[in-house]
Protein backbone atom coordinates (compact mmCIF):
# COMPACT_ATOMS: atom_id res chain seq x y z
CA UNK A 1 0.00 0.00 0.00
CA UNK A 2 2.64 2.39 1.06
CA UNK A 3 4.79 1.69 -1.99
CA UNK A 4 1.78 2.19 -4.29
CA UNK A 5 1.12 5.56 -2.75
CA UNK A 6 4.71 6.52 -3.28
CA UNK A 7 4.49 5.49 -6.91
CA UNK A 8 1.27 7.50 -7.32
CA UNK A 9 2.91 10.51 -5.75
CA UNK A 10 5.91 10.13 -7.99
CA UNK A 11 3.68 9.90 -11.05
CA UNK A 12 1.94 13.04 -9.95
CA UNK A 13 5.27 14.79 -9.57
CA UNK A 14 6.31 13.72 -13.04
CA UNK A 15 2.98 14.87 -14.45
CA UNK A 16 3.40 18.20 -12.72
CA UNK A 17 6.91 18.56 -14.06
CA UNK A 18 5.73 17.81 -17.59
CA UNK A 19 2.87 20.25 -17.18
CA UNK A 20 5.27 22.87 -15.92
CA UNK A 21 7.67 22.23 -18.77
CA UNK A 22 4.83 22.40 -21.28
CA UNK A 23 3.61 25.63 -19.81
CA UNK A 24 7.12 27.03 -20.02
CA UNK A 25 7.32 25.95 -23.64
CA UNK A 26 3.98 27.52 -24.46
CA UNK A 27 5.03 30.78 -22.87
CA UNK A 28 8.33 30.65 -24.73
CA UNK A 29 6.50 29.90 -27.95
CA UNK A 30 4.19 32.83 -27.44
CA UNK A 31 7.11 35.06 -26.56
CA UNK A 32 8.96 34.15 -29.70
CA UNK A 33 5.80 34.51 -31.71
CA UNK A 34 5.70 38.11 -30.57
CA UNK A 35 9.40 38.64 -31.34
CA UNK A 36 8.95 37.27 -34.86
CA UNK A 37 5.88 39.41 -35.35
CA UNK A 38 7.72 42.52 -34.19
CA UNK A 39 10.54 41.85 -36.61
CA UNK A 40 8.08 41.32 -39.44
CA UNK A 41 6.41 44.60 -38.56
CA UNK A 42 9.73 46.46 -38.83
CA UNK A 43 9.24 46.69 -42.58
CA UNK A 44 5.82 48.26 -42.05
CA UNK A 45 7.21 50.64 -39.45
CA UNK A 46 10.06 51.60 -41.78
CA UNK A 47 7.75 52.33 -44.71
CA UNK A 48 5.52 54.39 -42.45
CA UNK A 49 8.42 56.28 -40.93
CA UNK A 50 10.01 57.04 -44.28
CA UNK A 51 6.73 58.18 -45.80
CA UNK A 52 5.77 60.30 -42.81
CA UNK A 53 9.16 61.96 -42.41
CA UNK A 54 9.64 62.73 -46.10
CA UNK A 55 6.08 63.98 -46.57
CA UNK A 56 5.83 65.97 -43.34
CA UNK A 57 9.06 67.78 -44.10
CA UNK A 58 8.43 68.03 -47.82
CA UNK A 59 4.88 69.34 -47.64
CA UNK A 60 5.61 71.97 -45.01
CA UNK A 61 6.56 74.76 -47.43
CA UNK A 62 3.09 74.54 -48.99
CA UNK A 63 1.26 74.94 -45.69
CA UNK A 64 0.46 78.55 -44.78
CA UNK A 65 2.28 79.78 -41.69
CA UNK A 66 5.33 77.57 -42.10
CA UNK A 67 8.14 79.05 -40.02
CA UNK A 68 10.78 78.58 -42.71
CA UNK A 69 8.61 80.41 -45.27
CA UNK A 70 5.97 79.22 -47.69
CA UNK A 71 5.97 78.53 -51.39
CA UNK A 72 3.17 77.97 -53.88
CA UNK A 73 2.76 74.30 -54.76
CA UNK A 74 1.73 75.14 -58.33
CA UNK A 75 4.83 77.29 -58.77
CA UNK A 76 6.95 74.48 -57.36
CA UNK A 77 5.58 71.83 -59.69
CA UNK A 78 5.45 73.98 -62.83
CA UNK A 79 8.40 76.28 -62.17
CA UNK A 80 11.16 76.33 -64.75
CA UNK A 81 13.88 77.77 -62.55
CA UNK A 82 15.67 76.50 -59.44
CA UNK A 83 17.57 79.36 -57.85
CA UNK A 84 17.74 78.85 -54.08
CA UNK A 85 19.77 82.04 -53.62
CA UNK A 86 16.85 84.04 -55.03
CA UNK A 87 14.21 81.90 -53.31
CA UNK A 88 13.00 80.43 -56.58
CA UNK A 89 12.20 76.76 -56.37
CA UNK A 90 10.67 75.32 -59.53
CA UNK A 91 11.16 71.70 -60.46
CA UNK A 92 8.91 71.55 -63.51
CA UNK A 93 11.88 71.42 -65.87
CA UNK A 94 13.44 68.63 -63.79
CA UNK A 95 10.28 66.54 -63.90
CA UNK A 96 10.20 66.89 -67.67
CA UNK A 97 13.91 66.06 -67.90
CA UNK A 98 13.41 62.98 -65.73
CA UNK A 99 10.55 61.80 -67.92
CA UNK A 100 12.53 62.42 -71.12
CA UNK A 101 15.56 60.62 -69.73
CA UNK A 102 13.49 57.63 -68.62
CA UNK A 103 11.59 57.39 -71.88
CA UNK A 104 14.84 57.66 -73.82
CA UNK A 105 16.48 54.95 -71.76
CA UNK A 106 13.45 52.70 -72.25
CA UNK A 107 13.43 53.28 -76.02
CA UNK A 108 17.09 52.25 -76.31
CA UNK A 109 17.45 49.81 -73.46
CA UNK A 110 14.28 47.76 -73.69
CA UNK A 111 14.69 46.36 -77.23
CA UNK A 112 18.36 45.58 -76.65
CA UNK A 113 17.55 44.00 -73.30
CA UNK A 114 14.69 41.85 -74.58
CA UNK A 115 16.67 40.66 -77.59
CA UNK A 116 19.65 39.80 -75.40
CA UNK A 117 17.29 37.82 -73.17
CA UNK A 118 16.00 36.03 -76.28
CA UNK A 119 19.57 35.20 -77.22
CA UNK A 120 20.37 33.74 -73.81
CA UNK A 121 17.11 31.82 -73.43
CA UNK A 122 16.45 30.61 -76.96
CA UNK A 123 19.42 30.89 -79.28
CA UNK A 124 22.66 30.46 -77.35
CA UNK A 125 23.94 26.98 -76.63
CA UNK A 126 23.94 26.18 -72.91
CA UNK A 127 27.67 26.73 -72.80
CA UNK A 128 27.52 30.21 -74.32
CA UNK A 129 24.51 31.08 -72.18
CA UNK A 130 26.60 30.13 -69.16
CA UNK A 131 29.24 32.61 -70.27
CA UNK A 132 26.85 35.45 -71.05
CA UNK A 133 24.68 35.13 -67.94
CA UNK A 134 27.46 35.81 -65.40
CA UNK A 135 28.39 38.81 -67.51
CA UNK A 136 24.88 40.18 -67.13
CA UNK A 137 25.12 39.52 -63.38
CA UNK A 138 28.37 41.45 -63.29
CA UNK A 139 26.75 44.29 -65.22
CA UNK A 140 24.03 44.33 -62.55
CA UNK A 141 26.59 44.26 -59.76
CA UNK A 142 28.78 47.15 -60.89
CA UNK A 143 28.09 50.08 -58.53
CA UNK A 144 26.22 52.86 -60.27
CA UNK A 145 28.97 55.32 -59.41
CA UNK A 146 31.28 53.43 -61.76
CA UNK A 147 28.79 53.85 -64.58
CA UNK A 148 28.99 57.53 -63.73
CA UNK A 149 32.78 57.48 -63.88
CA UNK A 150 32.59 55.75 -67.26
CA UNK A 151 30.03 58.24 -68.50
CA UNK A 152 32.05 61.17 -67.23
CA UNK A 153 35.29 60.00 -68.83
CA UNK A 154 34.06 58.30 -72.02
CA UNK A 155 30.50 59.16 -73.00
CA UNK A 156 30.61 62.88 -72.20
CA UNK A 157 33.79 63.58 -74.20
CA UNK A 158 32.47 61.40 -77.02
CA UNK A 159 29.19 63.31 -77.20
CA UNK A 160 31.07 66.61 -76.95
CA UNK A 161 33.57 65.84 -79.68
CA UNK A 162 31.62 63.81 -82.20
CA UNK A 163 27.88 64.18 -81.75
CA UNK A 164 26.69 67.40 -80.12
CA UNK A 165 26.28 70.40 -82.43
CA UNK A 166 26.89 72.67 -79.40
CA UNK A 167 30.17 71.01 -78.38
CA UNK A 168 28.55 70.16 -75.07
CA UNK A 169 29.12 66.78 -73.48
CA UNK A 170 26.94 67.01 -70.36
CA UNK A 171 23.58 66.44 -71.95
CA UNK A 172 20.28 64.60 -72.00
CA UNK A 173 21.83 62.28 -74.59
CA UNK A 174 24.66 61.27 -72.24
CA UNK A 175 22.11 60.67 -69.48
CA UNK A 176 19.97 58.51 -71.77
CA UNK A 177 22.96 56.47 -72.92
CA UNK A 178 24.13 55.79 -69.36
CA UNK A 179 20.64 54.91 -68.15
CA UNK A 180 20.07 52.58 -71.14
CA UNK A 181 23.12 50.57 -70.13
CA UNK A 182 22.12 50.58 -66.48
CA UNK A 183 18.61 49.22 -66.98
CA UNK A 184 19.84 46.40 -69.25
CA UNK A 185 20.55 43.81 -66.51
CA UNK A 186 17.13 44.29 -64.89
CA UNK A 187 15.29 43.93 -68.18
CA UNK A 188 17.41 41.00 -69.35
CA UNK A 189 17.09 38.91 -66.21
CA UNK A 190 13.35 39.47 -65.78
CA UNK A 191 12.66 38.91 -69.49
CA UNK A 192 14.78 35.76 -69.54
CA UNK A 193 12.78 34.30 -66.68
CA UNK A 194 9.55 35.21 -68.45
CA UNK A 195 10.72 33.68 -71.75
CA UNK A 196 11.79 30.48 -70.03
CA UNK A 197 8.40 30.22 -68.33
CA UNK A 198 6.60 29.97 -71.70
CA UNK A 199 5.25 26.39 -71.93
CA UNK A 200 7.16 24.14 -74.34
CA UNK A 201 3.92 23.08 -75.98
CA UNK A 202 3.46 26.61 -77.41
CA UNK A 203 6.79 26.33 -79.18
CA UNK A 204 6.16 22.80 -80.35
CA UNK A 205 2.77 23.81 -81.70
CA UNK A 206 4.27 26.70 -83.63
CA UNK A 207 7.05 24.55 -85.04
CA UNK A 208 4.46 21.95 -85.97
CA UNK A 209 2.64 24.56 -88.03
CA UNK A 210 5.82 25.08 -90.02
CA UNK A 211 7.08 28.29 -88.41
CA UNK A 212 10.78 29.11 -88.56
CA UNK A 213 12.76 29.65 -85.38
CA UNK A 214 12.53 33.43 -85.63
CA UNK A 215 8.80 33.28 -86.26
CA UNK A 216 8.41 31.10 -83.20
CA UNK A 217 10.40 33.58 -81.13
CA UNK A 218 8.69 36.74 -82.34
CA UNK A 219 5.15 35.45 -82.99
CA UNK A 220 4.76 32.89 -80.21
CA UNK A 221 7.27 33.13 -77.38
CA UNK A 222 7.53 36.91 -76.96
CA UNK A 223 3.73 37.48 -77.07
CA UNK A 224 3.28 34.68 -74.53
CA UNK A 225 5.92 36.19 -72.24
CA UNK A 226 4.47 39.69 -72.66
CA UNK A 227 3.36 40.29 -69.06
CA UNK A 228 6.63 39.09 -67.56
CA UNK A 229 8.61 41.25 -69.94
CA UNK A 230 6.37 44.19 -69.14
CA UNK A 231 7.14 43.70 -65.44
CA UNK A 232 10.83 43.86 -66.33
CA UNK A 233 10.28 47.06 -68.27
CA UNK A 234 8.45 48.67 -65.36
CA UNK A 235 11.24 47.63 -62.99
CA UNK A 236 13.66 49.18 -65.45
CA UNK A 237 11.66 52.42 -65.41
CA UNK A 238 11.84 52.37 -61.61
CA UNK A 239 15.59 51.97 -61.72
CA UNK A 240 15.95 54.73 -64.31
CA UNK A 241 13.83 57.23 -62.39
CA UNK A 242 15.51 56.51 -59.08
CA UNK A 243 19.05 56.52 -60.41
CA UNK A 244 21.12 59.35 -59.07
CA UNK A 245 24.84 58.94 -58.77
CA UNK A 246 25.65 57.88 -62.31
CA UNK A 247 23.45 60.51 -63.90
CA UNK A 248 24.66 63.38 -61.79
CA UNK A 249 28.15 63.11 -63.31
CA UNK A 250 26.97 63.43 -66.91
CA UNK A 251 23.89 65.67 -66.76
CA UNK A 252 25.30 69.16 -66.37
CA UNK A 253 22.63 70.04 -63.79
CA UNK A 254 21.63 73.55 -64.95
CA UNK A 255 19.55 75.91 -62.84
CA UNK A 256 16.78 76.31 -65.39
CA UNK A 257 15.44 75.35 -68.75
CA UNK A 258 13.32 72.60 -70.25
CA UNK A 259 15.52 70.49 -72.52
CA UNK A 260 14.56 71.27 -76.13
CA UNK A 261 17.01 68.92 -77.80
CA UNK A 262 18.85 65.86 -76.57
CA UNK A 263 22.02 67.93 -76.56
CA UNK A 264 20.76 70.23 -73.80
CA UNK A 265 21.97 69.99 -70.24
CA UNK A 266 19.46 68.57 -67.81
CA UNK A 267 18.94 68.35 -64.08
CA UNK A 268 16.92 65.34 -62.94
CA UNK A 269 14.77 65.20 -59.82
CA UNK A 270 17.19 62.87 -58.07
CA UNK A 271 20.21 64.99 -58.92
CA UNK A 272 18.61 68.03 -57.39
CA UNK A 273 18.51 66.34 -53.98
CA UNK A 274 22.07 65.05 -53.97
CA UNK A 275 23.61 68.23 -55.35
CA UNK A 276 22.36 70.52 -52.62
CA UNK A 277 21.48 68.33 -49.66
CA UNK A 278 24.97 68.76 -48.27
CA UNK A 279 24.59 72.43 -47.43
CA UNK A 280 20.89 73.30 -47.73
CA UNK A 281 19.14 74.85 -44.75
CA UNK A 282 15.72 76.20 -43.84
CA UNK A 283 13.23 76.53 -46.69
CA UNK A 284 15.86 75.36 -49.18
CA UNK A 285 16.27 72.07 -47.31
CA UNK A 286 12.50 71.63 -47.08
CA UNK A 287 12.20 72.20 -50.81
CA UNK A 288 14.68 69.38 -51.35
CA UNK A 289 12.41 67.12 -49.33
CA UNK A 290 9.52 68.36 -51.49
CA UNK A 291 11.60 67.17 -54.45
CA UNK A 292 11.89 63.86 -52.62
CA UNK A 293 8.10 63.74 -52.26
CA UNK A 294 7.69 64.14 -56.03
CA UNK A 295 10.22 61.35 -56.61
CA UNK A 296 8.37 59.23 -54.06
CA UNK A 297 5.07 59.77 -55.89
CA UNK A 298 6.66 58.76 -59.19
CA UNK A 299 7.94 55.55 -57.65
CA UNK A 300 4.59 54.81 -55.99
CA UNK A 301 2.77 55.11 -59.31
CA UNK A 302 5.31 52.77 -60.88
CA UNK A 303 4.89 50.26 -58.05
CA UNK A 304 1.12 50.31 -58.40
CA UNK A 305 1.44 49.64 -62.12
CA UNK A 306 3.91 46.86 -61.39
CA UNK A 307 1.54 45.25 -58.90
CA UNK A 308 -1.30 45.42 -61.43
CA UNK A 309 0.85 43.66 -64.04
CA UNK A 310 2.00 41.05 -61.52
CA UNK A 311 -1.52 40.24 -60.38
CA UNK A 312 -2.51 39.87 -64.03
CA UNK A 313 0.31 37.39 -64.50
CA UNK A 314 -0.85 35.46 -61.46
CA UNK A 315 -4.45 35.40 -62.74
CA UNK A 316 -3.27 33.82 -65.95
Amino acid sequence: MVSQEIIKKENKDVDNAILKENRKQTILDKLFHIVFLLCACMAVVAVFAITIFIFSKGLQPFIPGNEEGTYSFIKFITGLEWKPSQNIYGIGYMIIASIYATVGAIVIGVPIGILTAVFIAEIASPRIADIVRPMIELLAGIPSVLYGVFGFAVIVPFVRNYISPFQLGDSLLSVILILSIMILPTIISVSETAIRAVPKSYKEGAYGLGATKMEVIFRTILPAAKSGILAGVVLGIGRAIGETMAVILVAGNPESGIPRTIYDQVRLITNNIVLEQGYAEGLHEEMLFSTGVVLFLFIMIINIILNKIRSKVVEK
Binding site: I50, I54, G238, I241, G242, E243, T244, T270, I273, V274, Q277, L288, F289, G292, L295, F296, I299, I302, N303, L306
Partner: peptide, 9 residues
Protein backbone atom coordinates in the same frame (compact mmCIF):
# COMPACT_ATOMS: atom_id res chain seq x y z
CA UNK B 1 11.04 50.00 -54.75
CA UNK B 2 12.14 53.12 -52.90
CA UNK B 3 15.21 54.66 -54.58
CA UNK B 4 18.28 54.85 -52.40
CA UNK B 5 18.39 58.63 -52.50
CA UNK B 6 15.07 58.66 -50.61
CA UNK B 7 16.64 56.37 -47.99
CA UNK B 8 19.47 58.87 -47.81
CA UNK B 9 17.01 61.74 -47.22
Amino acid sequence: GIPSIVYGL
